[in-house]
C-alpha cells in the first residue's frame, strides 16, 4: 500500500507531466486562460488517464508483449512495435465512450467539459502515460495508480496556472511578452517550484 501511495505522489508531483516531462503542453497552455476550463480539463484528464493506462496495460500484456502468444503455440511472436497504433486506438475509443456515457447519463457534467474531451485523443500526456507504463514494467495495480496520479498532477498544475494567468489581468506587461511569452515563463517558475518535490519520494 505504501509503495502504491508513493507511486501516486511520484506520478503526481515528482514526475509532473507538463512541468517536468513537457507532455501535454499544447492543451496545458491553450486551456489555462481561466480556472473554469482548466478545472474541466483537469477532471477529464484524471478520468481518461485513470482508464486508459490500465486498459493499455491489459492489452499490451495480453496481445502485444514479446511472448504474449505463447498459449497459441507461437512463443516467438513479438508485436510490441504495434503498441503505438493499439494505444492510440484505445485512447480514441475510450474518449469517445466517455463522451457518450457522460452525454447520456450526466448531461450537466458533459455540458461543462464536453468540448475538451475530443481534444484529449491527441494529448501527448495520455499517450505518454501509456508508453511510460510499458517502459517501466508496471503491473496492473501500479499502472492504475500511475494513471490516476499523473492525471491528478496534470489537473493540479493546469488549475494553478489558470489561477495565476487570471491574476495577470492586473499586470502591465511589455507587448511582446503578453500571452504566450509570459505563460512559458510562469510555467518555468512553476516547474522550478515542482522540482523541489523531487526529494519527497525516495525510490
Amino acid at each position: 500500500m505504501t509503495a502504491l501511495g508513493s507511486l501516486f505522489l511520484q506520478a503526481a508531483f515528482v514526475e509532473n507531466m507538463p512541468l517536468t516531462f513537457f507532455l501535454g503542453l499544447c492543451t496545458f497552455i491553450a486551456l489555462s486562460r481561466k480556472t473554469g476550463p482548466a478545472l474541466g480539463l483537469g477532471i477529464a484528464m484524471i478520468a481518461v488517464m485513470g482508464v486508459t493506462v490500465p486498459l493499455n496495460h491489459l492489452i499490451y500484456n495480453a496481445l502485444l508483449a514479446p511472448g504474449a502468444w505463447r498459449w497459441a503455440g507461437l512463443p516467438e511472436i513479438d508485436l510490441s512495435y504495434l503498441k503505438l497504433i493499439a494505444f492510440i486506438g484505445v485512447i480514441a475509443a475510450t474518449v469517445q465512450l466517455l463522451e457518450m456515457v457522460l452525454d447520456r447519463f450526466f448531461p450537466a457534467i458533459y455540458a461543462s467539459f464536453g468540448v475538451f474531451l475530443p481534444l484529449l485523443t491527441v494529448q501527448c500526456a495520455i499517450l505518454g502515460g501509456s508508453l511510460f507504463m510499458v517502459d517501466r514494467n508496471y503491473d496492473l495495480a501500479e499502472s492504475a495508480v500511475f494513471g490516476l496520479g499523473a492525471g491528478f498532477g496534470f489537473a493540479v498544475a493546469v488549475v494553478m496556472l489558470g489561477a495565476i494567468r487570471a491574476r495577470l489581468a492586473y499586470a502591465d506587461l511589455p507587448n511582446g511578452l503578453r500571452g504566450l511569452g509570459i505563460t512559458f515563463i510562469l510555467a518555468g517558475m512553476m516547474s522550478l517550484g515542482f522540482s523541489s518535490f523531487a526529494q519527497m519520494v525516495t525510490s
Binding site: 511582446g176 511569452g181 515563463i185 518555468g188 522540482s195
Partner: peptide, 17 residues
Amino acid sequence: APSAFFLLGGLVWAIRT
C-alpha cells in the same frame, strides 16, 4: 526542465519584439 520554459518564453518575447 525550468530553463527550457524560460528560454522559449524569452525566444517568443524576442521574436515578438
